[in-house]
Simulated scan of single mutants.
Amino acid sequence: MSKIALIGFDADDTLWKSEDYFREAEATFLEIVGRYEDVSASAQALYAIQSRNIALFGYGVKGMVLSMIEAAVEFTNARISAKDIHRIVEIGKAMLDHPVELLPGISDAVRQVAESYPLVLITKGDLFHQERKVAVSGLTEVFQRIEIVSEKNEASYERLFKEFAVDPAEFLMVGNSLRSDIAPVIELGGMGIHVPYHVTWVHEHAEISAGIERFRTAHSAADIPAMIQALAESPTP
């Protein structure tokens, strides 16, 4: 009998592309402010402003755009034009309108896993934007619950365990972010499969101790079902 009672999947950069668009937006932003000042250190300064604002704006495109506007005023000593502020707003609008591009093989992998286990989608970010992406992804029906949270930390996962009446040891999380998807679950006693994406926001970096049997790394979506099965059949630590 499987020891897994519930499986969670992350959304951005696990099911579909996301961080690529943020990197492109950042590059366009730096090109705009670069007309006013040297931007050699601006990427790090922008991240500092974004990190400071997460508690106010949350994650996602809208919070990023507000931080970009604040940064643009700061970097240019308030010399940035209204036209260029508008360009920054347009960056955000374009991102919100991006099509949802599923990652290779992930649809088949998720559907295969859903044949054996109940699934929940757990993502963070702007509510309206995330709801739209989920709705057009074509995967809505495979998930028993869609959870859009302000932060993915131990408290968020503990609420999920309570709602689904599952023990942490019976839960497995699949995602690209060690910080948000894997580390909190491992810390609570659950299982995690890290699916690295080719680019990850620095805010999501973390370390997982080597040798933890409850933690695996999948280098492609096709590896996920077999890894889940292996974890389900592995001896309880």
Rank of each mutant, 00 (worst) to 15 (best):
M1R: 14
S2P: 13
I4D: 04
D10H: 04
D12H: 07
D20H: 08
T28M: 12
T28N: 10
T28L: 09
F29K: 10
F29I: 11
E31V: 02
I32Y: 03
V33G: 04
R35W: 02
R35E: 14
A41V: 04
S42V: 01
S42G: 01
Q44F: 04
Y47E: 15
I49C: 02
Q50D: 13
S51E: 15
S51Y: 10
N53W: 11
L56H: 14
V61C: 02
V61A: 03
G63D: 06
S67N: 05
I69C: 02
F75C: 02
A78R: 15
S81D: 10
K83G: 00
D84L: 03
I91L: 13
I91K: 03
A94H: 11
L96C: 08
P99K: 15
V100Q: 06
L102K: 05
L102A: 01
L103C: 05
L103Y: 05
L103R: 02
G105D: 11
S107T: 09
R111W: 10
V113G: 00
E115L: 08
S116D: 14
I122D: 07
T123M: 09
G125P: 03
G125R: 09
D126E: 14
D126N: 15
F128I: 12
Q130P: 06
R132C: 01
R132A: 03
S137E: 11
S137N: 11
L139K: 07
T140F: 05
Q144K: 12
E147G: 00
E151M: 09
E154D: 10
V166W: 06
D167L: 06
D167G: 00
E170N: 09
L172A: 10
S177H: 08
L178M: 13
L178V: 03
D181C: 05
D181V: 01
L188E: 12
G189S: 04
G189D: 12
P196I: 04
V199S: 04
W201Q: 12
W201D: 14
V202A: 12
H203P: 01
H205K: 13
I208D: 07
I208L: 05
S209R: 15
G211T: 08
I212E: 13
E213D: 15
A218L: 06
A222K: 14
P225F: 07
I228G: 00
I228E: 06
Q229C: 05
S234I: 10
P237K: 13
